[in-house]
Design a protein around this nucleic acid. Structure first.
Lengths: 358, 358
DNA sequence: CAATGCGATTAGATCGATCTAACAGCCGGC
DNA sequence: GCCGGCTGTTAGATCGATCTAATCGCATTG
């Protein structure tokens, strides 16, 4: 309906025989209006086919219900699952998400943030584009709160919601250690990203605690994609270090790695142990189902939304940091723990298919 | 920045020594303003730290840049990939997407559509929740245009953007026929959904054209999830019809099906041929990589956005229907075509792993 | 020279809901 | 009988950009 053709509060007021102010109070559910009057107004609203005009309300009240959702890479299922979690929580809170995908493009991120300011968003939940530094996020002191999701930015004291990456990766590595592996690789992503740094750190801690040497040739950096995981696995198989297991930066890499194994006729959980990170919905449907760390994306989205509303009517600035998820190991089949129950190392032998199918 | 603390056009006007109207014209890039004056105004904008107030502009001009994006199931990677495509196109067109996920919930869909009317969206791109019927989409005749994505609604003449489902599924089935399969199953979704009906129809057409009987026990309805696909495969393997191949309603089902095979020590492309539909980004990373029909989600998002802007400043009502994608078969390895090159049927035998790995 | 045209700018009204401050009416209390 | 307090309602100003119609200056033209 063309905005200028719509009925307004004045039409309702006339229809109901009250003033515009009364109508406005009813619209906002005020308890200062007599119930019978309110009913009369609501009846009139239906009769004139009223549709609320939020632009007008936003202008006068100098407040919106918008929240910006800026994701760095929505094609990555991790971020799209996170976006679903955030959307869901915002919806429950009566907030309206404006979505933008930056594709890790800084220029686009800047435009998008600017545009969100123009819309008067209450706040922004931002998973920063890859090369973001503190300078890119320098906002006027009175700008609405921005919450960083997933990626911390050096020198930037914005509130942050993420996972306990180090602890999660440590648990992943400890799991492999407990299964008897001694040559455990790390298939990782961009070393400039804090998430990568933290997960790698957790992995290192576990190896150190187990008295295993930290060999640099056990670190395989690669693209954070399924293809990247496959490529890392190829390199690992060819390497002199001969790892028998790997902690992966995330599930995408882990899934790619299991696939690379499969293409060689090998199987994760039998011939090589793999732990992922994120517990994407496709992790359980991988073959073999992926042992991984649960990132609890839904909970994370919820947490981000909660912190945001805390900041909206709360103190001007906060550096609240929340860590949710990333600490639960989900044991499935890609490490062999469930299949065999044994804790010894598994070799690189080619298993016969018959042993599987009986 | 709290909306009421912001500089306004008046502040700019004073700073630049011009009128508010001039500032407004500069803001909108009018060519009626002398370049030097425009520069002066832009300079003043920077000096006062101006941020455009879209609520005010929207109110006065009775127009927004909002477009509603209502998705029925964003957890499904198909829809999240579609959402990315739409978001991307809208962004290029200078439109701002408001995102909502209905989770196939009719009540939520209704609320969300209502809310979008309130925001004055220029239009809505809607992938309808499962049980949507024409009555749920009855909008006032002057409401903004709504475009249906993916699901047509009976008795509803709204413009529609989707794929050539029948043709795609026919190609999928023809591919299997050409490989020599005679007992070809269909692993399908909800028969109440037009997409399912069309894809199943395409499959039937191909079988009929090949002179193959259309056996009802070759249709396996299941959940449109990876788990559903696995379950369908289990039933197919146990069935008396003994299919040797399957056209799947979508990639999720196909992926689940290949996994169910793998759990039995069988392999898609050797022991059973599988074609998916959608060409999700994970399809190529499946093991084995999935032969599938390309849904061209990005192109579809683009098409939806294009049609929408056509309707926005175009004729009041249109029933334009666009079919994009769904007609290209992407041959990978899940049917054996690339692996063996042979066109004969493959049996249900358990292949030895050695034959793969050499 | 008055009239016309045109480019550039502007004053003032306007969009529709909300806010502020005030109002009428009514009760009870001293 | 007057005052204070309370409930329910309201008139009128207001948010900030845009729209309309008009204006100004200056050049052109019959």
């Amino acid at each position: 309906m063309s905005l200028r053709a719509r009925a307004t509060v004045l039409d309702i007021a006339r229809q109901a025989g009250v003033s515009r102010a009364t109508v406005s109070l009813v619209l906002r559910g005020s308890d200062r209006i007599k119930p019978e009057t309110a009913d009369k107004v609501r009846q009139a609203m239906k009769e004139v086919g009223y549709v609320y005009n939020r632009a007008a309300a936003n202008l006068r009240s100098a407040r919106t219900n918008f929240v910006g959702m800026v994701m760095s890479d929505l094609k990555n299922p991790f971020f799209s699952e996170l976006a679903v979690g955030i959307e869901d929580s915002l919806y429950r809170l009566g907030l309206t998400p404006i979505l933008a995908n930056t594709n890790d493009d800084l220029a686009r991120q800047r435009q998008v943030l600017q545009s969100m300011l123009e819309y008067g968003v209450l706040g922004v939940i931002l998973s920063p584009a890859r090369a973001t530094d503190a300078g890119h996020l320098a906002l006027p002191p009175t700008a609405p709160p921005v919450i960083l999701a997933m990626r911390k930015i050096d020198g930037c004291d914005l509130p942050y919601v993420g996972q306990d990456n180090a602890s999660g990766a440590r648990k992943a590595a400890e799991h492999l250690v407990a299964l008897g592996h001694t040559r455990i690789a790390f298939f990782g992503g961009d070393p400039a990203i804090t998430t990568q740094q933290e997960r790698y750190r957790g992995y290192c801690e576990a190896l150190r605690a187990a008295g295993l040497p930290l060999l640099p040739d056990l670190l395989f950096e690669t693209d954070v994609t399924r293809d990247g995981g496959g490529e890392a696995m190829e390199r690992a198989m060819a390497s002199a270090a001969k790892p028998t297991a790997a902690v992966c930066y995330n599930d995408l890499i882990a899934i790619g790695a299991t696939r690379a194994l499969a293409m060689r006729g090998l199987k994760a959980g039998e011939d090589f142990a793999i732990v992922g990170f994120d517990n994407l919905s496709e992790a359980k449907d991988n073959f073999p189902p992926l042992t991984t760390i649960d990132a609890e994306t839904m909970a994370m989205g919820d947490r981000a939304a909660q912190i945001l509303i805390g900041l909206i009517d709360g103190p001007a600035r906060s550096t609240a940091t929340a860590v949710t998820g990333g600490s639960r190991l989900v044991v499935r089949d890609s490490c062999g723990a469930r299949l065999t129950g044994r804790s010894g190392a598994v070799s690189n032998r080619v298993s016969s298919r018959a042993s599987l199918t009986g």
